[in-house]
Amino acid sequence: MPALLPRLPRAFQLVAMPLPVVPLSLLLGAVTRRMARTHPVMLRRLGAYAGKRFLIDPTDLPFVLLLQPLASQMTAHRRSSPPEHDARIAGPLSAFLAMMHGAEDGDALFFSRDLTVEGDTAALLALRNAIDDAELDLTEEFAALSGPLAAPLRLALARAERATGLALHRIDIGVLG
């Protein structure tokens, strides 16, 4: 029984289709470097797995992401030419966002087949646990990089969250029923 995850709006998928991967990689790299700096405990939890290459495959987007925690790098690549990696995790974007923000349990998404994993299972487990403990908040990470635009960005992301159902900020765990 799959989880009741929101689907990425078709319009967003169409907009994302022609996005160039180089500027996207620059943005992702900046967010990843900031997360590594502000959440150093993630690298400690990853331990020997910090040097692994993780392919994150949001199956409803036209590109895949390569995360290299030790180098604090994340880059976007066309799905047709995925980079070499040690472990791959695939599923809808909404599943990744829900797991990162504490709205869904990673194992439950695996049981329900919403997420699939391949490759170095131990590395993926370490990554999942490190991210869960860090209690990340993507909205706040982007806002911190946006200078004077932080307030309107928060507003825009909150609206996008309401409109799409995607978990774009860390949820208050107290609201989980």
Binding site: M99, A103, L176
Partner: peptide
């Protein structure tokens, strides 16, 4: 203990 904070919160409640 190997599960996420989301699991813990839901089950404990």
């Amino acid at each position: 203990r190997q599960r996420s904070r989301s699991y813990v919160a839901q089950v404990v409640r």
